[in-house]
Amino acid sequence: MTDPARMNENDEYWVARAQAGDSEAFEHLVRRHQRGVYAFCRRLTGSHDEADDIAQEAFVRAYRSMDRFRGESRFGTWLRQIALNLVRSRARRKRRFPLVSLDPDTLPSDAATGTAPGQPGGDLDPLRSRLLRATVCELPEKQRRTLVLKIYEEMTHAEVARLMGCTIGTVKANLFHALRRLRRQLGDRR
């Protein structure tokens, strides 16, 4: 595993170069964060196509606003903030013009994405894993976003609150509701 402190230090170096107009440095940052940003978007949207589009767009927006990144948060957190804003605005648009349903069962098959069924999930039964993801996808938006930030991005309550633009109390409440709903719908482990 890469040491996160070292990783961050390296980010600073590449960010400074990208801010000075070095496009190869920016591409380096893209390659470095592409998996994390994509996985974040995929958990929020439940769809490969949407995650692909939003993740790319997030990097484009980051590129355009590089001069506004002041290093107050980690570069990865900043990218996630941009991605989260995109997810939010698309969700708003989708509520007004509903077109696509968020059904994880309509995701591209494992064969199409080049992985064996259930393989990256490790020891999870693939059916159970699919059910789990489907249930997380069906959570109300704020609960889902809060859960993803807390559990998968491993952020503190304060970090989640800052990104979501809410109070720590709201973060706790959303986590509680998310977990209670999952508990009710998924029941006990088979």
Partner: peptide, 12 residues
Amino acid sequence: EIAHDETRDPGP
């Protein structure tokens, strides 16, 4: 279980 469920990787 939720925490260890990883997203599917789209491949190399």
